Simulated assay, not measured.
Amino acid sequence: MEKQFSWKDLLNPMFYIVYGGFFLLLFIVFAETGLFVGFFLPGDSLLFVAGIYSTNLADDLFRKFGMTGIRPEWLDLLVLIALISIAGILGNTIGYWTGRKIGPTMFHWRDRFLFKKKYLYDAHEFYEKHGGGAIIFARFLPIVRTFAPIVAGIVEMDKKKFSFYNMIGSIAWVFSMIIAGHFLQKWIFTQFDFDLKKHLEVIVLGIVIVTTAPVLVKLFFGKKKVSQPPTN
């Protein structure tokens, strides 16, 4: 029986892996880090689950190019990490140029379902506090990672400096999540005979809670103040 689509599936990383495969995963990473409407898409949990299913994703990818046979484990991980990192780099680059071109006017847009000015203010405050390193740190923070490159473009961060932090941040984010998912699955299964694949809902929920905790704390317990659009 064919599964009926539900809007909540958009928040479920397994939905993209099962029904879209590796190339949809690439697009989701690109969209979440480069398109301001992609802030609601799963990022950390998607990459962690992708690490758990890295062999399956690699098999699907190599099969599409007519490459079959036994491959070393490191090759699967290297290819996945490299391609996903490139998608993240390109996404942030689009976000940066969006900020350069239309960013300042975004602070005068009305709030909509898929756009809140508060997200831009939060990302700007985060950027001002951490400087260039914010581009790296933001990769590990939902919502903030979507708007950080846009804010970097708005304040006209040096292109070379942005590109450097962008590459480091994307590789660090993708590498840590993919490797964590892949090897944690193997270690836990070997040591405790516990298959993470059968408990993905709990794992994804845990990742979401951990990664969104800083954002939620800032949202509900941060000092309330009136924000003004940043000036160059």
Rank of each mutant, 00 (worst) to 15 (best):
L47R: 01
L114F: 12
E32T: 03
T212Q: 00
F140T: 00
I94S: 05
M14N: 11
I89P: 01
I179P: 08
L80Q: 09
A31F: 03
I28T: 04
D195C: 01
A50Q: 12
G95I: 02
A152R: 00
E125N: 12
G131D: 13
G69N: 11
Y53A: 07
P142F: 15
S6N: 15
E2N: 11
I150M: 10
L83Y: 08
Y127L: 15
A82V: 13
V79T: 06
P142L: 14
S6E: 08
Y127P: 04
F27I: 14
V79E: 00
I70T: 12
K198L: 14
S45V: 10
D9G: 05
K3G: 01
F22Y: 03
M167C: 14
V29Y: 00
A58D: 00
Y127G: 09
S85F: 00
L83H: 07
W187T: 13
I179N: 03
G103L: 07
V29A: 02
W173I: 06
S85A: 07
V210A: 15
F30K: 00
I81V: 14
K160I: 12
V204S: 08
T98Q: 07
F39M: 13
S85Q: 11
Y19P: 08
V226P: 06
V174M: 05
T98M: 15
K161V: 15
G133P: 00
K8G: 07
D60I: 15
W109C: 02
F23Q: 08
I70W: 05
E73I: 04
L57P: 00
L200K: 08
L216P: 00
N166K: 05
F39H: 04
F192S: 09
T231V: 11
R110D: 15
Q191M: 10
I143Y: 04
I209W: 02
F40Q: 03
L41A: 08
A123R: 03
I203F: 05
T93L: 07
V144G: 01
Q4S: 06
V226W: 07
M177T: 12
H182T: 07
